[in-house]
Amino acid sequence: MKKREETDVAPKKKGALRENIEAIVVAVILALFIRTFVVQAFKIPSGSMKDTLLIGDHILVNKFIYGVKVPFINKTIIPTHDPQRDDIVVFEFPEDPSKDFIKRVIGIPGDVIEIRNKKLFVNGVPVKNSHGIYSDPKIYAAGTQPRDNLGPITVPEHKLFVMGDNRDFSYDSRFWGFVDFIAVKGKAFIIYWSWDKEDFGVRWGRLGHLLE
């Protein structure tokens, strides 16, 4: 008596439409995961960070560097390390959390910040670097507005004091106060695209520029 021959039953092939839909869904989920937890793209709309960042620069922001946060409630579930002085950070604007701002960290918790006639001091030591620029020769006296004369003030726990590099034309912590750690979305680290709207052209020399 002959043994019954075993036969392999080939599984039904997925339809091309279903395969494409599944690939799209996976790609969307992966993109959302990366955007939420790893890296996010932002466009610079103002000149408050000139000359470090120009209007039309497109940057990538590392969202993992300061810890993993739960979306929507901004609760940190995996802390890593806190922002440091000179970091360029993107954060929710304290006066309107629906807007994102980008500035440079000047003071961290415990630092004493003082500005005397546009000269910046942190913990009594004058800050000398090439980031901050001043293009308005006018100096506002203390008591009129805080742009050119401020403090001394101490940065509270879990807060940051931030300023734009375009010091005379930046709306920052001098005017509206401190940034809470929880409002920080990440650290800007590279310019991946730059478009000059006035000259209608690409700023090729800025592409791939690492931010300091």
Score class of each variant (00 low, 15 high):
residue 146 P to Y: 14
residue 26 V to R: 06
residue 155 V to M: 01
residue 188 A to D: 04
residue 159 K to S: 07
residue 96 D to C: 08
residue 166 N to Y: 03
residue 65 I to R: 11
residue 201 G to Y: 01
residue 170 S to P: 00
residue 65 I to W: 09
residue 192 Y to K: 02
residue 156 P to L: 07
residue 97 P to M: 10
residue 176 W to T: 06
residue 208 G to I: 13
residue 125 V to I: 14
residue 170 S to G: 00
residue 161 F to S: 05
residue 73 I to A: 08
residue 154 T to D: 06
residue 10 A to G: 05
residue 196 D to C: 08
residue 1 M to W: 10
residue 131 H to Y: 15
residue 74 N to R: 13
residue 29 I to Q: 00
residue 158 H to M: 04
residue 48 S to W: 01
residue 80 T to G: 04
residue 52 T to F: 11
residue 27 A to C: 13
residue 84 Q to F: 05
residue 178 F to G: 02
residue 165 D to N: 09
residue 92 E to P: 00
residue 83 P to Y: 04
residue 137 P to M: 02
residue 179 V to A: 08
residue 199 D to W: 10
residue 106 I to P: 00
residue 106 I to G: 02
residue 80 T to W: 02
residue 45 P to K: 02
residue 138 K to D: 07
residue 27 A to G: 15
residue 133 I to H: 13
residue 73 I to S: 09
residue 44 I to P: 02
residue 174 R to E: 00
residue 128 K to S: 12
residue 20 N to R: 10
residue 9 V to N: 10
residue 9 V to F: 15
residue 121 F to E: 00
residue 143 G to W: 02
residue 11 P to I: 13
residue 5 E to K: 14
residue 44 I to C: 08
residue 15 G to L: 05
residue 155 V to H: 01
residue 81 H to S: 13
residue 9 V to G: 07
residue 84 Q to W: 09
residue 196 D to M: 03
residue 154 T to K: 02
residue 1 M to Y: 10
residue 28 V to H: 13
residue 78 I to E: 14
residue 90 V to S: 04
residue 160 L to D: 04
residue 142 A to S: 07
residue 183 A to R: 06
residue 137 P to E: 03
residue 146 P to R: 12
residue 36 T to D: 12
residue 6 E to C: 14
residue 176 W to D: 02
residue 181 F to N: 03
residue 140 Y to A: 07
residue 92 E to Q: 15
residue 42 F to P: 00
residue 75 K to Y: 15
residue 81 H to K: 13
residue 125 V to G: 00
residue 95 E to A: 15
residue 183 A to K: 11
residue 151 G to F: 04
residue 69 K to Y: 00
residue 121 F to C: 05
residue 40 Q to A: 14
residue 61 V to D: 10
residue 54 L to R: 13
residue 209 H to N: 12
residue 135 S to E: 15
residue 29 I to C: 06
residue 13 K to A: 15
residue 100 D to G: 01
residue 29 I to M: 14
residue 110 G to M: 03
residue 181 F to P: 01
residue 70 V to R: 07
residue 31 A to P: 06
residue 14 K to W: 15
residue 102 I to V: 15
